[in-house]
Structure formats: structure tokens, C-alpha cells
């Protein structure tokens, strides 16, 4: 073997890597037919490859995935919430609907902080108080928001006060004041909600009645 040129062993490795050129391969083959020690060397190298490749394919131990997951740092809660929404689409839709509905009702309650009232020809306004003067008759409903109402005359319809009070109302004093319809005072948020819902159902009902 000491007689053999060094590059022959190099060619053997090129051959094993599958990267040998045509000329090198021919030279290697020619040399191997003549030289038994190089033949032996080549044979041993091929055996090494077969030996290492004979290693069986082993798999990961049981519960490997669980063990890795247990070692991971805690996940951000954002993803957990997201996954919950993914697996409960109906509940999510219902919850979202409820949130938006109540939010819109409450905001309309909170945002309407301005004084407003139903315009009627013969009522008098004094600051934030709506006055139905004595001897006058108002035909129709009156709604007052964020203000008070003082009824000295006659209202031929319903009176609704939101965030306000009735001053000298017919309920409290004997007078000529008279309201032919209902009187409603709405102060609380829930009353407001109730009032809105009743209003809505009334609208819906009237719509159906029209259809009929």
C-alpha cells in the first residue's frame, strides 16, 4: 500500500460520496484490479458505510410531546381566548350581539343629556321647565327629556318625563290641571331600557297592524 499514490484513497472517498468524475473512476478501477491492499481498503470503507447504515430507526420515547409542552413557557392568554371563541362560534355571536345591543342602548341614554321636549303650540318654556299654562289645552303627547314639566292646564294625551320631575302635577295638588293619558317618569337606566324596548315593540306591532 505504501507504493500506492495518495490520491487513490481520495478517489475512493469521492466514489463513496457519489461525486467522482469519469476519469478518476477509470483510474481508481484500473488501480484496484492491480493492487490487493487498495482493494482491501476500498472493501473496508464500503463495509463501514453499510455498518453505519444498518443502525435501526429508533423513535422518540412515549409522551415526548406532552413533556415538551410541559416545559414550554406559559402561553399568552390572548391565544387561549381566541381558541375559545373558535370552538364556540354560536356563544361568541350571541355574546357579541348582547354587548353591542346593550352598549348602544346605554350610550343613547347617556349621550342624550340635552334638554328637549315635544313642540306643542301653546306651551311655555322657562329655563329647563316646560309649562302648560292654566286654561290652555294641549292636544297630543308631550315628551320632556332632561327637564321638568309643570302642568297647570289640560293635556289631552300622554306625558313622559325622562330624567326630570313633574312640578305641581295633578297627582300632587288639587288644581284645574288635567292629563287625560298616562303620566310616566323615567329616571333609571333600566327604566330607560324598558321604555326603549316597549317603544320598539309598539313600533313593530303598529307595523304589523298596518300590514293587516
Amino acid at each position: 500500500m505504501s507504493m500506492c499514490p495518495d490520491h487513490i484513497v481520495h478517489y475512493m472517498h469521492e466514489y463513496l460520496d457519489g461525486e467522482i468524475s469519469r476519469e478518476h473512476e477509470l483510474e481508481l478501477k484500473a488501480h484496484l484490479t492491480d493492487c490487493t491492499s487498495c482493494q482491501q481498503h476500498m472493501h473496508e470503507l464500503s463495509k463501514v458505510v453499510a455498518f453505519v447504515q444498518s443502525a435501526s430507526h429508533i423513535s422518540a420515547p412515549d409522551h415526548f410531546v406532552e413533556n415538551v409542552t410541559a416545559r414550554l413557557p406559559k402561553e399568552r392568554s390572548r391565544a387561549g381566548v381566541k381558541r375559545w371563541f373558535h370552538s364556540h362560534p354560536l356563544l361568541t355571536a350571541a355574546a357579541l350581539f348582547m354587548i353591542l345591543m346593550s352598549a348602544s342602548l346605554f350610550t343613547s341614554f347617556n349621550e342624550d343629556q340635552q334638554f328637549s321636549f315635544t313642540k306643542q303650540p301653546n306651551i311655555v318654556v322657562d329655563g329647563h321647565t316646560v309649562i302648560v299654562p292654566e286654561g290652555e289645552t294641549v292636544k297630543g303627547n308631550i315628551v320632556v327629556k332632561n327637564g321638568d314639566i309643570q302642568i297647570d292646564g289640560v293635556v289631552d294625551g300622554n306625558v313622559t318625563i325622562i330624567n326630570g320631575t313633574i312640578i305641581n302635577g295633578s297627582q300632587y295638588m288639587a288644581s284645574t290641571a288635567n292629563v287625560t293619558g298616562e303620566i310616566q317618569e323615567i329616571d333609571q337606566a333600566f327604566d330607560w331600557l324598558w321604555y326603549k324596548m316597549k317603544d320598539l315593540s309598539k313600533d313593530v306591532m303598529s307595523l304589523f297592524n298596518k300590514d293587516n
Partner: peptide, 19 residues
Amino acid sequence: GDQNAFAEIVEIYQDKLYR
């Protein structure tokens, strides 16, 4: 931020890496 997706990645590569 979804850890469950990572468990699937571990599932795929566990044998190779352990080997």
C-alpha cells in the same frame, strides 16, 4: 401565540430530532 400548533410541530419532528 398558539401553543397547540407547536405541539403539532413537535409531533412531526420528534423522532428525527430524538434519533
